[in-house]
Structures are given as C-alpha cells and as structure tokens.
C-alpha cells in the first residue's frame, strides 16, 4: 500500500455520513452513518432487502446516493470516484470474468486498469496469483476454472492493486466448505497485511471466523455497528465466563456474588454466566477457591458470543423497539 496516502494510520478507512438512497416509494438506505476502522474486518449483515448491496455499491462509487457523503481513505467517493477506485477493491455478488482471457491476462489487465505501473504489473500478477493459489493456473483460460478458482481470480482482480479497503458482497456464495475455509484464511491474511474488509454475507458462521466488527442494517437503517466481543477494548477488564457444575448447588449464585471482579449475569443451580474483570491468574485463583469450597466444577471457561448469536440479539432488540 502507498504510504503517501493522505489518511493517517489511525484515521478510519471509510466514513459514511447520512447516506440515503431511494427507489420509487421506498428508501433503500435511510441516513446511514458509520466509520470503518483501519485493519478491521466488518461483517455487514441484515435480512434480504435490508440495503446491504446498495450500501456496498454506493461505497464503491457504482451508485449515486440521493444524499450523504462517502469517503474512502480520505478520498470523496462521490467527487472523485476514479481516484477512490485506486484505494478500494470490490467484488460484487454476481461478478463476471473474461472467460476467453487466461488467468495471467485477467490479472494483468486488472493491474493496468487500476493504475499499477507497467514495470510492476508482472510482479503484481505473480504475487497475487501466488497469494491466491493460482500460480499454476496462470496459462489457463478463466472460463476453464472451477467456481472456487473463479472466485479466487475475481478476488485477485479486486486486490491486485493493493487496495486499502476491500468490499465483498456474498463472497462465499456457492463455494464448497473447503473453498470457504480457504477464503476465510485469505481474508485473515489480507487483514494481517493491513487491508480493511467490509464483507456482506448470509453465512454468519463463515463471517464469525474472521470478523472483528459487526454492522447490522435493517430496512435501510443502521441498527448497530460495534466491535465484536473478542475485539472489544474492555476485553482484558471484563470477560464473560461460564461455570458448569457436575452436581447442582442451590447456593451457586450466592457463592459467586460479592467476589472481587465478579458480576453474576445469569445463575441457576448447575450453571452460571458471570462477567469477570481480572487476569487469567485471577481466574485460576477463583476456580481454585470455588473447588476448595466443595463445588463440583465441571468447566469454567470463557463464553464467547458468536456472530450468529450477536446478530440475533441485535435484531431481537431492534424488533422489540419497533420500526
């Protein structure tokens, strides 16, 4: 990535401000505002028709919103869409490839079209093909590739210029489990290299593997945008721990209450969920104390809420709040 980009390292990679998009009689996006942190992988989730694809197309400069502002890496997408395209990559849900071109030609064309200098095109092609496991497919026509490999090639075309932000609309649709796993690994690698990703998908289990943030939209409105628990700033201070007993104990809640750093969230006779503010050493000491008091502890481990649970909790709250 170009270190001379005006955006500072700590600044958000994308800013969306009061974005609205309308179809006749319906508002696909209604004053949506959010920021995407650099180096994050944001899961864009919501029911069908929520406005996810419209949002991604607006971010990519492919659709003109009715109102609002969008910037990617400090570039105003609506004012300078061509410049913004140098900073972002986009994989649409129904992507196309030039089937008659070879993999090498597809990648070389994408690199040149995205402004990679002619002297660097060859290296960019080799690097991207290697990263995506397409190095031995370079002479093959794109039309001869399997669906999984076509998906990789399409992603290769989107990232060959080293974008700072990668937008992906249902990237795993139609892929077999093995290809999905490989895709998740690729996204983790890209994030590790400093790229930020915004991924729309219906397959929440797959998003859960690599997402750091969740952005929920429903009926064109932003319902929630937050860091997922494992990434939350207060992680070290408060973790959710689940305690399970091999034998029920009616005094479990009372035994947990009042201990230093422990807040009981849920408690029954044979299990409890607590928020624990302390180090792993303190956690070990707590476990030791509980066992020492005669509790038959079967397990005492971190209770991570997965993306699916988090999404359902979020939309559940949104539903309770009414439209």
């Amino acid at each position: 990535m170009d270190p001379d980009f005006p955006s500072a390292r700590g600044a958000p990679i994308a800013k969306v401000d009061a974005l609205s998009f309308e179809y006749p009689g319906s508002r696909a996006l209604d004053a949506v505002s959010f920021e995407i942190a650099r180096g994050s992988v944001t899961a864009l989730v919501g029911p069908n028709g929520a406005g996810k694809t419209t949002l991604l197309r607006c971010l990519a400069g492919l659709a003109v919103p009715l109102a609002g502002a969008i910037s990617v890496a400090g570039v105003d997408v609506l004012e300078e869409p061509r410049e913004a395209h140098r900073r972002l990559g986009y994989l649409s849900d129904f992507y196309g490839l030039y089937d008659a071109l070879t993999v090498r030609q597809c990648l070389a064309w994408a690199a040149q079209a995205q402004g990679v200098p002619a002297s660097s095109v060859q290296a960019a092609v080799e690097r991207t093909a290697g990263r995506l496991g397409l190095a031995d497919r370079l002479p093959q026509p794109a039309g001869a590739l399997s669906r999984g490999l076509r998906q990789r090639l399409a992603i290769g075309q989107a990232i060959i210029h080293g974008p700072e932000l990668l937008l992906l609309d249902e990237p795993a649709a139609g892929l077999d489990p093995e290809a999905r796993h490989a895709l998740a690994g690729l996204f983790r690698t890209l994030r590790g290299e400093g790229m930020s990703l915004l991924v729309s998908s219906h397959i929440l289990a797959e998003l859960d593997e690599y997402s750091t943030h969740m952005l929920v939209i429903r009926d064109g409105r932003l319902v929630e945008h937050r860091a997922l628990e494992r990434e939350a700033p207060g992680e070290a201070a408060a973790r959710r721990l689940r305690l399970r007993l091999a034998a029920p104990d009616a005094s479990l809640a009372a035994r947990l209450a009042g201990r230093e750093g422990v807040s009981v969230l849920e408690a029954g006779e044979d299990a409890a969920l607590v928020a624990f503010a302390g180090s792993e050493r303190a956690q070990a000491a707590l476990l030791s104390a509980l066992v020492g008091e005669g509790l038959a502890v079967a397990s005492f481990a971190e209770a991570r809420e997965n993306l699916h649970e988090s999404y359902l909790r979020t939309v559940g709250h949104a539903g309770e709040g009414g439209p």
């Binding site: 061509r82 395209h85 140098r86 402004g115």
Partner: peptide, 17 residues
C-alpha cells in the same frame, strides 16, 4: 456485451479515466 457478461461493473471500478 459487458453488461450481459457481468464485467461492466469491473470496468466501471477501474481507475481509467
């Protein structure tokens, strides 16, 4: 033809003027 083969968005996303 680009629209039909779904490559037009790819072209519109390029940095070419």
């Amino acid at each position: 033809d680009e629209v039909r083969s779904r490559t037009w968005d790819l072209q519109r996303l390029s940095a070419l003027g």
